[in-house]
Amino acid sequence: MSLLTIFYILAAVTLATGFMTVISKNPIHSAIYLVLCFFSIGGHYLLFNAQFLALVHIIVYAGAIMVLILFTIMLMNLNKENEPIKSIASVLAAVVAFALLCFVMLAVFIKAMPQIENYQSSGQDYQSIKVLGKVLLNEYMVPFEFVSILLLVAMIGAVLLSKKQKTVE
């Protein structure tokens, strides 16, 4: 079994579960299909030998975000099987946002190609966490710090929101 076969299987799983996420009427089934979709994307990362990216993807998306989404669905008792049809405007907005994201991703990949060739010619394992950490904390120090501050702000905001509700009660 070559890598290509594995890629086709993974791609089929990704697409199928992605469609099922959208099509499913039951929100919990939808969420579970999305989890499977994340796992198959993690598999794609592993095919590129990007172990760090695959594991972080699973920890963050499948392990944290989707658990919280499942939580909300279960707590809000959304498991009734009727979902109102969304307005055309929001669907259109979603499509435009997705197209823009694709554009950015394409640009990123095109710009990354010479970098990857550099690493390949010097024989460095550019997927390893050692190289990744050095690049993140040397070349991209400032954006990295900005991202951490952004996350910190979100965390403090969440704490504040939960505190306000307590004083109201």
Binding site: V35, Q51, F52, L55, I59, A62, V67, I129
Partner: peptide, 22 residues
């Protein structure tokens, strides 16, 4: 022996929640 073994342990741990939830 993967060089991100610790993250692997945490990934498995965080996925284990689904068993109970589902």
């Amino acid at each position: 022996d993967i060089d991100v073994a610790m993250l692997y342990v945490f990934a498995v741990l965080s996925v284990g929640v689904y068993g109970i939830m589902i």
